[in-house]
Design a protein around this nucleic acid. Structure first.
Lengths: 334, 334
DNA sequence: TCGATCGATGTAAACGTTATTACCCTAGTG
DNA sequence: CACTAGGGTAATAACGTTTACATCGATCGA
C-alpha cells in the first residue's frame, strides 16, 4: 500500500505538504504542487479512506435506505441519488430492508454512526423512532413528513394533491362519472394521502361518484387479484395505487375480454418505466423519480456541508405530472 | 461519541478486554464478558468502523458494480447480494456505472483500495483491464469469464447453452420451423454467447430455419423499434435478447393487430418480473437472479475470509430454467 | 514444593491521515 | 539595518481500534 510517506519521500516534501496539496491545493506553492501531484500520479497514491475518516470524523459516505430495491420506484430513486452523490464526491451505500421495520431499525442504527447522513425512503418506522434517529444523525426523509410542531426533520415529499387533482380532472373532463380508486396498503403514508386527495378531488366535482377499495397488495399480482372486484363496481374509470397494480388490472382485464380504454379507462401512479411495457401504454401520474433521489441527496449534503446554515428550506416538495398515454379515453368511446 | 475507553471505564476493565470481548468472546472469562456486554448495551457503544478498518486493514465492505440499477435484471441481482451480505455481516456498496466503461474504470479504481473486494457485473471493460484489476484486489465477475489460460479470476456465469437449448427445443417441439432471434448489443458478452448457442441449437434440428437480427437496443423501446422488421422475416417464433425487448415487441405487435401466441410465439430471456406484467405473460428462460447475486457474494467472501484455501472452485455456473407461460403455442393454433 | 504452563487481563504501539503548532526564510517597512 | 509580517513548509499529536507482548495468578506435574 502506498501512503503519504511514500509520496512525500518521492517528491522531497513532508507528509503534511502532501496532504495539503490534495485537500487545499491553493495553500501550497505552484512548484511543490506539481511535484507532489506528479509523485501521486507515478505511485498511484490514493488516500486511505479509513484513516481519513478516522481523523476527520467524516466518512464521505451517505446511506440510502429503501424498502425494496427491486421495486422500479426505488430503483429509479436510487439511480438519481447515485448520480448526485458521484457529482458531489460522496459515496452511497444502498440498503434494502426487504420491507421489514425491524431490519430498517437495525440497519439505521448501525448506519447512523458510520456514515455522514441518512436518506430514509418510505419508512416503516414510527414518527417517534424517526425523530429520535434524526436527532442522532443528519437525516432526510422521502415520502414522509413528520407532523409534530417543533419537528424539523428535512423531507422530500410529493405533492399528491396536485397529481391526484390532475388525474381526476383528466378523467372527469373525458366524461367519466363513475370512478374507482384501487388503494394500496392502508398503513402506507402515501396511500393515506392519495386516498384523501382523491376523495377531496371527487367531492368538488358535480355528479362524480367515487368508490374506493383499499389494501390492495401493491404489485401486479395484487392488481390481478382485485380485477374482477373492480369491474363489479361498475365504474368507467379506475385509478390504481401504482403502475404495478395498474399493470395487473390491465393484464387480468385483457384476459377477461375487457378492453382498455374502450370499456374502461385506467390511470396509474408513479410513472415508472412499467407504463411503456404494457398494452396500451399506461396514463400515469408521477414525478421524475431520479429527481426525487437527486433532491434528497442535495438536501442532505447541504445540511452536512453547510451546517446550521438555514433551518428553513428543510422540505422540498416535488410536483408530479400527469402523463397521458393510451389507457384513458372518453367512456363508451368504441 | 462513545468509545472503548468509556466502556472500559464503566465495566472496570482495560480497553483491550473490551475489544476482545467483542471480537473473540471466548477469550475472556464469563463474568467479564457479561459485565462488558452490559456496559456496551447501556452506553450504546458501537465500534467505530473507520478506526477498525484502519487498524485491521479490512473494511468489512464489498462493492457491487452494475451497469444500470434501474434494469430489473441488476436490481434483482443486487437484492440477492444485499441479503447475502447482511447474513455474512458485510456491508455492500452498490455502484451504477450508467453503462459507461470510463465510469466503471474510474469507480473500480477508487473502490478496490477502499473495499475488501469487488463484484463486477456485466462489465464493459477489456479482458486486460479486468485481469489487472483482479490482480490488485479480490474480485468476482458476473456474466463474464476471462479466457486466457492461466487466468483465474473467479466468476459466476449462466449456462447459456442449456437455457437456449431448452427454449429452442420448446419451440421446435411445438412445431415451429421458422425461428427469429432478436439479439442485443453486439459488444455484449452475453449476446455473443446466446447468439452462438442459438445457432448451434438450431443447426442440430432438422428443418429448422433460423434468422438472426442483432444490435437491438436492449429495452422495450428497442423491441418496439424492430417489431415490424421481425414480422417481415416470416418467422413463426421469436426469441428476444431479454424480457424488455420481448415486452417491446409484444406491445408493438399488439398495436399492429398481431396476436401472441396465436400468430406468433415469443420467448424472452432472464425471467424478470416483467414477464408477469405483460399480456400474455411471457415465456422466458432465465436463472433466479437473486441467486446470481448470492453466489457472487459467497464466492467473493469465501476468497476473502479463507485466503488461498482453494484456487479451484473459482467459477460457478448457474443453470437457467425455461418457464413456459402464455406467449408460446403451436404455430397456426388459432 | 518449585518451576512450567496456561488463562485472563493490562500496556502500549501501531494503522494512515489531517490539523495544529512551530519554524524558517524572504520581503517589506520605518 | 533591524524588525516585523507572512507565506510556505515541517514536526507532531491526535482520531479509535486492534493486537503483539508483558504481566500476574493459579493450576498442575514431577
Amino acid at each position: 500500500m502506498v501512503t503519504v510517506h511514500d509520496v512525500a519521500a518521492r517528491s522531497g516534501v513532508s507528509i503534511a505538504t502532501v496532504s495539503r496539496t490534495l485537500r487545499e491545493p491553493h495553500r501550497v506553492s505552484d512548484d511543490t504542487r506539481v511535484r507532489v501531484l506528479a509523485a501521486v500520479d507515478e505511485l498511484g497514491y490514493r488516500p486511505n479512506r479509513a484513516a481519513s475518516s478516522l481523523r476527520r470524523g467524516r466518512t464521505g459516505v451517505i446511506a440510502l435506505v429503501v424498502p425494496d430495491i427491486e421495486n422500479p420506484y426505488f430503483a429509479s430513486m436510487t439511480k438519481g441519488a447515485q448520480v448526485m452523490c458521484r457529482a458531489r464526491g460522496y459515496g452511497l451505500v444502498v440498503v434494502d430492508t426487504t420491507e421489514r421495520a425491524e431490519i430498517e431499525d437495525e440497519e439505521v442504527r448501525a448506519l447512523r454512526s458510520q456514515t455522514d447522513g441518512l436518506i430514509i425512503a418510505s419508512s416503516r418506522l414510527s414518527d417517534e423512532r424517526l425523530t429520535e434517529i434524526a436527532d442522532a444523525a443528519p437525516c432526510v426523509l422521502v415520502n414522509r413528513r413528520l407532523t409534530g410542531p417543533g419537528e424539523a426533520v428535512p423531507s422530500v415529499t410529493i405533492d399528491e394533491e396536485t397529481g391526484v387533482e390532475a388525474a381526476v380532472a383528466h378523467l372527469y373532463d373525458l366524461g367519466h362519472r363513475g370512478l374507482l380508486y384501487v388503494g394500496g396498503p392502508s398503513r402506507s403514508w402515501s396511500q393515506a394521502r392519495r386516498s384523501a386527495a382523491i376523495a377531496e378531488a371527487a367531492a368538488s366535482r358535480a355528479g362524480l361518484h367515487l368508490v374506493q377499495v383499499s389494501d390492495c397488495v401493491p404489485t401486479s399480482e395484487g392488481g390481478r387479484a382485485v380485477a374482477r372486484e373492480a369491474l363489479a363496481t361498475g365504474a368507467t374509470a379506475v385509478i390504481a395505487y401504482n403502475d404495478l397494480v395498474a399493470a395487473g388490472l390491465l393484464a387480468q382485464w385483457t384476459e377477461l375480454g375487457v378492453r382498455v380504454p374502450d370499456d374502461l379507462s385506467l390511470v396509474g401512479f408513479d410513472d415508472t418505466f412499467v407504463t411503456g411495457l404494457v398494452t396500451p401504454p399506461l396514463t400515469s401520474v408521477g414525478v421524475d423519480l431520479r429527481e426525487l433521489g437527486d433532491a434528497a441527496v442535495e438536501l442532505l449534503l447541504d445540511r452536512i456541508d453547510r451546517p446550521d446554515a438555514n433551518a428553513e428550506g428543510n422540505d422540498r416538495t416535488v410536483v408530479p405530472r400527469l402523463v397521458v398515454r393510451a389507457s384513458t379515453a372518453a367512456p363508451g368511446a368504441r
